[in-house]
């Protein structure tokens, strides 16, 4: 053992260099200790992390109060402690005080949050899970992780978080390699996936559905009106015809009126009217539904196509038109449950 070679008698032990030459001096130790003491509080660390992770690198008291359900005076007190040791700087603009990480501490804070904090937790978890944690052992850990991530990644559903955490863990475990770090790795990987998913959800516009038939006078009008009725502004609905008729079928108009569409374009701009099928309507649509009338649409990549084979109201009896309407209604509901799984439809509506 190498240490023994430099362990002569206590009385004659003089290290090659006086250790104090290399070690931190007592004045510096006082300053560093005071700073670390100010940082040694979970809430302050989370505030620091919240400030460090905002896109513009600053936050105000109001932003931080949301973090931990504490009052603004409490938040202000903690921020003052961090400001007094020089970790934060503040600036009053208008009625609010904005806090940022002071430039001299930016590197140290990044190190603390990105390296020290994960290492502190990893060490604790490794101690808790010596050896190889199986999926059964780790389940409570994953559940806790999912809850924590759901709280930390805005716009994340707790059930989604748990699913993503479990998937991530399994995928990483299958990959082999270091198993001691699986939970921290899972956290990192799952967090990335949830942040990505949330970013996609934010940038996602409502799905656009285009109903196409020949005349755009009956089936596609009914389908569009029903979908709009159920989905409101959560779906963009369009309808068009390859050879649009002059007006909507008289037999269909009462059903459209039931859905709140005006009878005539001249006195109600919400009234339905047959429209020609255009290239841009097709391109803009995410889902294109042809109504069993033999239309052929150019098939563009990345879209979903369906063909709903339903009868033509123009040829049907009054009760037949009602049956066609109900058939379209059932298909629209099915489509919606697929497009917007969280939308609850009133069974008796309309």
């Amino acid at each position: 053992m190498t240490t023994l070679s430099r362990a002569p008698d206590d009385a004659t032990c003089t290290p090659p260099h006086a250790p104090a030459d290399h070690a931190i001096g007592s004045d510096a130790a006082d300053v560093v200790a005071a700073t670390l003491k100010a940082l040694a509080d979970p809430l302050r660390l989370r505030m620091l992390s919240a400030i460090a992770t905002t896109a513009d690198g600053e936050a105000c008291v109001c932003d931080l109060a949301e973090l931990a359900d504490v009052s603004q005076p409490t938040v202000s007190h903690h921020l003052k402690v961090l400001r007094d040791v020089g970790v934060l700087t503040s600036e009053r603009r208008g009625t609010w005080v904005w806090y940022r990480i002071s430039p001299t501490y930016r590197g140290a804070v990044t190190m603390l949050l990105d390296r020290f904090a994960p290492a502190a937790l990893e060490h604790r978890q490794a101690a808790r899970h010596p050896g190889l944690p199986g999926l059964t052992d780790v389940e409570p850990e994953l559940t806790r992780l999912a809850e924590s991530l759901a709280g930390r990644v805005p716009g994340t559903d707790p059930a989604d978080a748990l699913r993503v955490v479990r998937e991530s863990y399994t995928a990483l475990a299958r990959r082999g390699g270091m198993t001691v770090h699986l939970v921290p790795l899972t956290e990192h990987f799952a967090r990335q996936r949830l942040v990505d998913a949330a970013a996609t959800a934010r940038s996602r516009r409502p799905p656009q559905v285009l109903f196409v038939c020949v005349a755009n006078a009956g089936r596609s009008q009914l389908a569009a009106a029903l979908l709009q009725h159920y989905a409101g502004d959560r779906v963009v609905v369009r309808s068009a015809g390859s050879v649009p008729a002059g007006d909507v079928h008289a037999a269909v108009k009462p059903f459209l009126a039931d859905l709140g569409l005006g009878p005539d374009l001249t006195d109600d701009p919400s009234a339905a009217y047959p429209k020609p099928l255009t290239d841009d309507a097709l391109r803009a649509a995410d889902v294109v539904i042809t109504m069993g009338c033999g239309d052929t649409c150019p098939v563009l990549p990345g879209k979903r196509y369906e063909d709903w084979v339903v009868g033509d109201p123009a040829l049907a009896s009054p009760s037949g038109v009602r049956a066609i309407r109900d058939e379209i209604d059932a298909r629209v509901r099915a489509l919606l449950s697929d497009l917007l799984p969280d939308l609850v439809l009133d069974r008796t509506d309309p």
């Binding site: 940082l39 040694a40 509080d41 979970p42 809430l43 302050r44 660390l45 989370r46 620091l48 992390s49 919240a50 992770t53 896109a55 973090l67 603390l112 949050l113 020290f116 904090a117 994960p118 502190a120 937790l121 060490h123 604790r124 806790r144 924590s148 991530l149 930390r152 990644v153 956290e187 967090r191 949830l194 942040v195």
Partner: peptide, 14 residues
């Protein structure tokens, strides 16, 4: 783009 420190991370670090 980064999530903030979790409660657990903050506690173990503190």
């Amino acid at each position: 783009l980064r999530a903030t420190l979790s409660r657990e991370q903050a506690e173990s670090t503190a």
